[in-house]
Amino acid sequence: MAGNRRSIVITGASAGVGRAITLRLAGPDTALALLARDADALEDVAREVRARGGQALVLPCDVASGDAVAAAGRAATEAHGRIDVWINVAMAAVFGTVDQITPEEVRRVTEVTYLGFVNGTMAALRDMRTRERGTIVQIGSALAYRGIPLQSAYCGAKHAIRGFTASLRCELAAAGSGIAITELHLPAVNTPQFDWARTHRDSEPRPAGPVYQPEAIAEAVASAIDRPAREYWLGRQGPLLIMGNQVWPGLLDRLMAKSGIEGQSTEQPVKRDQPDNLFTPVPGLHRTRGRFGQEAAARVPTFDARLVRASAISAALIVAGMLGFALGAAFI
Rank of each mutant, 00 (worst) to 15 (best):
P103F: 10
G96T: 08
P205W: 03
T30M: 04
L184C: 12
G209I: 03
R198G: 13
N190V: 02
R126F: 06
G54H: 01
D38W: 05
L25I: 03
L255Q: 11
P207G: 01
A160E: 03
A208E: 10
G96A: 00
D226S: 14
H200Q: 07
A46T: 12
P60M: 01
R230K: 14
T288A: 02
I217R: 01
K258V: 11
L125M: 04
T135N: 04
S65G: 00
F279Y: 15
L307Y: 09
R5Q: 14
L42M: 14
I179L: 12
G238R: 00
A92E: 06
A222M: 00
M1Y: 15
R24E: 12
A312H: 13
R230Q: 11
G140K: 09
D40Y: 07
Q237F: 12
I10M: 00
F292T: 00
I101C: 03
E104Q: 09
I101S: 04
I10P: 00
P249L: 13
F95A: 06
A218P: 01
G321D: 11
V221I: 01
R272A: 11
T288Q: 06
P28V: 09
H159K: 09
D40E: 15
R107Y: 13
T121Q: 00
W86N: 01
G140C: 00
P239S: 08
S167E: 10
